[in-house]
Simulated scan of single mutants.
Amino acid sequence: MKKKKQNRQQPVKKEDKPATLGDLLNQDIMEKLKAQQKDLKEQEEQKKQAEIQRKKEEQRLREKNKSFEELLSESEMDWKKFK
């Protein structure tokens, strides 16, 4: 004897995707958050640029204040070649 298979219908869902944060918040709040995110990115970029500029200035001052001995030791020139 064969048993009859029971056909179960799955409930039909309109959306299979879970609700996102953007769906739950209203449009004004989303715009404010995106603007704030953009501002934070710009501030971070400005900080990076300032740090790069500071390091360049620090390197320039270090080079400027080197003694003759330091400059001579870093030089790749060999006086024996020019003898």
Rank of each mutant, 00 (worst) to 15 (best):
M1R: 08
M1A: 10
K4M: 11
K4Y: 07
K4G: 10
K5I: 13
K5E: 15
Q6F: 15
Q6D: 10
R8H: 11
V12D: 02
V12W: 07
V12C: 02
K13M: 12
K13A: 10
E15Y: 01
E15L: 01
A19D: 09
L21I: 14
L21P: 00
L21Q: 02
G22N: 11
L24D: 08
L25H: 00
L25K: 00
L25Q: 00
Q27F: 08
I29K: 14
M30Q: 06
E31Q: 13
K32S: 09
Q37Y: 04
D39E: 12
L40W: 15
K41W: 05
E42A: 12
Q43H: 08
E44R: 10
E45V: 04
E45M: 09
K47P: 01
K48V: 12
K48F: 00
K48W: 01
A50E: 07
E51G: 02
I52Y: 02
I52H: 05
Q53A: 05
R54D: 02
K55S: 05
K55P: 05
K55C: 03
E57Y: 08
E57W: 07
E58F: 02
Q59I: 15
Q59R: 13
Q59S: 11
R60D: 05
L61V: 14
E63W: 05
K64D: 10
K64T: 13
K64Y: 15
N65E: 03
N65C: 04
N65M: 05
K66W: 00
S67A: 06
E69K: 04
E70C: 00
E70D: 01
L71A: 08
L72Y: 08
L72R: 12
L72T: 06
E74Q: 06
S75Y: 02
E76K: 06
M77G: 09
D78N: 07
K80R: 14
K81T: 05
K81S: 08
K81L: 12
F82N: 11
